[in-house]
Nucleic acid binder design. Structure first.
Length: 432
RNA sequence: UCCGGGUUGGGGUAGUGGUUAUCCUUCAGCCUUGUGGAGGCUGAGACGCGGGUUCGAUUCUCGCACCCGGACCCA
């Protein structure tokens, strides 16, 4: 016996069937918006990450030197790869560029609930539009994908904010402020006590009074208050942009899932405008389900023409947790439409029937193990076969086969020549 | 990297410093070359790995691996 690698998972057919159904919903929703699927390498040059984030990040990468002496890494996220792809063909690609992909990523991290070292994400991005409609379309896609999975507004919410609101309000204090530290404090405020939160803000350079005032303002989430308080062009523009995105989201059917939450900061990295995170409304899944936002500077920083971008990337592990808590996770079982049961030397006829049934797109199994009647029926039951076609020597003597409905146990003899005939989905009901 | 809790056939479990490790389930075959979801019989299958203590360790002990939570982190 060999052990699995920690943080890597096997998916057996039952669970995989549920995952496949979920991925299909998410991807079909993206196709419906005209997002086009792309394929990307598992391995990239490590410089894609170390150049931007420093060598410390290597600790969290599955990176190594390959036989050609290249410093490579399993990709921990899609964004740099997509940015590279956009830059490489920037002139050739018609805008806006709307891409999606579902695939695994790898990070050497501590394993926790909803977080493995190999994990799957569906990335959905729009490049080449700075209009609020692009942000709203990302939100609308995410909302459609989740509702398509059977979730409702009772199960999830998008907490939405704008990077320039926090930054702009902080800027309006005329003190020497560590803005990044303050934003980091806001991002963590959920998990901190009020005292700890205020202490962090004070540590970033605010006075105690300012910290309390700032915390109240941000927690209040009232855009007009914020705008009036900061009284700066940057904040005014940000508020207007956020309101425009929400207005578009209204038309796109996603507004009802959005809550303004200025405490949502989404880290510090490449986000530049609207940011949002999806949360479990019941609070049972404590961390955010996924996040997204606008990153208008990234393409340029990868050597391309300035190109606005907005995207989101739901992880399938947290998505699965959310669906399970909500009771809408698909049944974890395999499905089979027909089992063609052979008794005696009936392979030729059984094969013909199996092939005919598969022609019309059905899942059809037949015996490949030389098993007895009882054992075959047992197996048919175990694979959830809906209909069993018994091709037996006795039936064939009368030029018949037996159709058996597995749920009711009812069965009926039908002429072998008329099965499956022209029927798309023959069941016992067609012959009674 | 750190903290807590775990690990006995495929799954779920009982138990013990010393005979053949308990029970349920599962799987395979048979009873039954013609009827699964009922029964009977037969069979398969486990003390996570390594070191230590001991005459003897699945049991005590240490380390490691893996699992479940959590902290940090989260591009």
């Amino acid at each position: 016996m060999y052990d699995r690698i920690k943080g890597f998972r096997d998916f057996y057919p039952g669970e995989m069937a549920a995952r496949r159904a979920t991925i299909d919903v998410v991807e079909e929703t993206a196709r419906g918006y005209g997002f086009r699927e792309i394929g990307t390498p598992a391995l990239e040059r490590a410089e894609l990450w170390t150049d931007k984030s420093g060598d410390d990040i290597v600790d969290e990468l599955y990176s190594f030197e390959d036989q050609g002496g290249r410093h490579v890494t399993l990709t921990p996220e899609l964004t740099p790869t997509v940015a590279r792809m956009v830059v490489a063909k920037q002139q050739a690609l018609s805008k806006p560029i709307k891409w999606f992909s579902t695939r695994p990523f790898w990070r050497y991290e501590q394993v926790q609930q909803g977080r493995q070292r190999e994990f799957y994400q569906t990335n959905v991005d729009i490049f080449g539009s700075s209009e609020p409609e692009a942000d709203a379309e990302i939100l609308a896609w995410a909302a459609d994908a989740l509702t398509g999975l059977g979730l409702t507004g009772e199960h999830f919410e998008f907490r939405i904010s704008h990077r320039d609101i926090l930054g702009g309000v902080l800027e309006s204090y005329d003190t020497d402020l560590d803005t990044d530290a303050a934003i980091r404090a806001v991002d963590k405020s959920d998990k901190l006590s009020q005292v700890e939160y205020h202490d962090l803000l004070i540590g970033a350079g605010l006075t105690a009074d300012q910290a309390a005032e700032f915390a109240d303002l941000i927690a209040g989430g009232d855009l007009e208050d914020v705008e009036a308080f900061a009284d700066s062009e940057r904040v005014t523009d940000a508020v207007e942009n956020l309101q425009n995105v929400l207005a578009a989201a209204e038309d796109f059917g996603a507004r009802e899932y959005c809550t303004i939450s200025l405490e949502t900061a989404r880290g510090l990295d490449y986000y530049t405008g609207v940011v949002f995170e999806c949360f479990d409304s019941t609070g049972e899944v404590s961390r955010s389900i996924f996040g997204g936002g606008r990153y208008d500077d990234l393409i340029e920083s990868f050597g391309g023409q300035p190109t606005p971008a907005v995207g989101v990337a739901p992880g399938h592990a947290t998505l699965s947790l959310l669906c399970q808590r909500a009771g809408v996770w698909p049944e974890e079982e395999v499905q089979t439409e027909y089992y063609v049961l052979q008794v005696g030397d009936t392979r030729t006829e059984a094969a013909r029937i199996s092939r005919d049934l598969r022609e019309t797109g059905h899942v059809v199994e037949t015996d490949v193990a030389g098993r007895s009647f009882g054992a075959q029926l047992n197996y048919a039951d175990s694979i959830n076969a809906e209909t069993v076609v018994i091709v037996g020597e006795q039936d064939l003597e009368n030029d018949e086969v037996t159709i058996k409905d597995m749920e009711s146990g009812d069965q009926i003899q039908v002429p072998v020549d008329s099965f499956p005939g022209d029927l798309e989905r023959p069941t016992i009901d067609d012959f009674e």
